[in-house]
Amino acid sequence: MSKKVMIVDDEEDMRIFLETLFKKAGYETEVAINGEEAMRQLEHGVPNLITLDILMPKKSGISFFQAIREDEQLKSVPVIVLSGVTRHSEFFGSEARTGPTEFVEKPVAPDVLLSKAKELLGE
């Protein structure tokens, strides 16, 4: 069974790109357009990897990240925080150290992103 990547981003272009990327790499994908929707989808299943944007309406990436890191079931899910905000890792507190997390600044080459994802997935 292929591993599942949850894509959480309010930008359509990013969702299209990431879906194409991970699907081509053989992963299953599910998308959410904001943190709130992502939380609802997590109730139905835990993905193997989450790619997460920061600036989103109705629950920003930061508050979503805090929520999943406080959750016993979700805190060990690897997360790639993908954002165009410079030094966005500084917006995250100690919760960033409680689970496997990678901070990637946009723009990023597709192969680099894929490589980081495989690393977090232990491949």
Partner: peptide
């Protein structure tokens, strides 16, 4: 950056 990511993507 987003635009570049969009173009790259």
């Amino acid at each position: 950056k987003n635009i570049l990511m969009g173009l790259e993507g």
